[in-house]
Design a protein around this nucleic acid. Sequence first.
DNA 1: ATCCAGGATGTAT
DNA 2: ATACATCATGGA
Length: 294
Amino acid sequence: MESGVIPVTELPGGLDLQATLESGQTFVWDREDGRMYEDGVSGGSAWYATVVDGEVVRVRQTDDRLEWESTTDAEPLLVDLLRLDDDLDAIVASIPADPLLEEAFERYRGLRLVRDRFFPCLVSFICSAQMRVERIHGMQRALAREFGERVSFDGRTYHAFPTPERLAEATEAELRALNLGYRAPYVKRSAELLATGELSIADLDGLAYEAAREAMQAFVGVGEKVADCVLLFSQSYLEAVPLDTWIRGAIEEHYPDCDRGSYAETSRAIRERFGGRYAGYAQTYVFHHLRHLE
DNA sequence: ATCCAGGATGTAT
DNA sequence: ATACATCATGGA
């Protein structure tokens, strides 16, 4: 077993591990005390685990230390997954201040966007349609448990997220048995598109943001909103602003002039309001903040 | 019981 | 291009 510590104080803008992993942007991590998303339960010192690229990674944050244990040297992997290479201070400074954003930035400073792997992210957000965050997470854990490779580490068994090939082989009935509902055929057909090579992540190479969003909709179960989520949380299109029910509510309440009717035009308006290049960061802070006001 | 959740798809206009 | 019904499932 390898292990290490990353001093959070050396990261511009710091890190809030709990906010980052429990804000509904990534569903590949599991909290080992089983209290993921429980409101009012501090994630400080809780261990989180995932399997990425065949490697097990466990992390926890205690004050200004990010501690990790892994089957490999996880430091570069964590820099990648948690976007520790983002200058969060500079990013926040680039986003025009308004009362709602100020409040979100103050309360959750250290929340970072993630850089998830493409396929788990794609499946997660196909599953996200008309679904609560907690259940999306449960569905992804069920998919890993049922169809993912098993990896042993430190006397425990962890499950990788299944490959496109494996989910393409799964039957719709098997997926429905995991309570994916009407999303089951979407997941299977999108997995098939990747497994057969009919579509590839490389199709996005060199595409500007809006062209990439169009290209993403070639997958089944992927409309404009899900496309934005995958681009933002796995492909580093940090200007993407997924227009979900919460953000639409925020637009209605706080940025009514940005409601332009169509998704494409409203997206352009709110992106501009959030400072353009890093608008997705603003979106995720607002999403997390609003969801915790209830 | 009725409504809603990080919406997308198929069909009709 | 836009409007509408339909699609599972569980929790409030």
